[in-house]
Design a protein around this nucleic acid. Structure first.
Lengths: 92, 92
DNA sequence: CCTATATTTAGAAAATCTTCTAAATAGGCA
DNA sequence: TGCCTATTTAGAAGATTTTCTAAATATAGG
């Protein structure tokens, strides 16, 4: 939603690791959880933050929920950084 | 220093605003502080986090400390995001 | 319909973060 | 030297975050 939420979401190492996992394709909450030494509830918490930040979206299948990376929001963050860096192009 | 520190540093709105101010050129701690409704001590705290994350560097002059944006670290974050986004180039 | 599996929600504990006030440091200049 | 200005450090209060356990929800399949 807001940049604030997106940057907050990116600030946690677990959540960045989740995003990296999703780089290769969508995974269910359980599959994601199996990569971490944490309870499913904790993974669910992190996923909810990534979801609120629009960094991932979900789609249900059977009783699994698959999560997928939303590259367009990643792109938006890159644009903010590009503007901060400045000097290459993209000035108004 | 580490990505962890850099992303944490970027996760706070005050610190992102400081970086945006520095986009136009270096400013002293006091000049930075004058843009915010916060004590100098708090600004100093935020500057220390930006400094640890290598997002800014400082240089002293008289008894002022000027802060400057470190664009190379901004660049590194962009590269991480580009890799996450994937598909454009930069794969190993 | 009942049970088993996948995931989320609620609530609480512990850790971390943000902010303040007060005090310390450091440098320049009369 | 002694003071003034700029900034940081220390310590504490309050807010937010991360994690857990236990319970709730949802759905598939017998």
């Amino acid at each position: 939603m807001s940049f604030a939420e997106t940057f907050k979401a990116l600030s946690d190492p677990v959540r960045r690791d989740i995003l990296t996992l999703l780089k290769k394709g969508s995974l269910s909450a359980g599959e994601i959880g199996s990569h971490f030494d944490m309870t499913g509830a904790t993974i669910s918490y992190h996923l909810s933050i990534l979801k609120k930040a629009d960094l991932v979206f979900e789609n249900k299948q059977k009783n699994f929920i698959y999560y997928e990376l939303n590259t367009s929001v990643v792109e938006e963050v890159m644009l903010w950084l590009a503007d901060l860096r400045g000097g290459t192009d993209n000035e108004p």
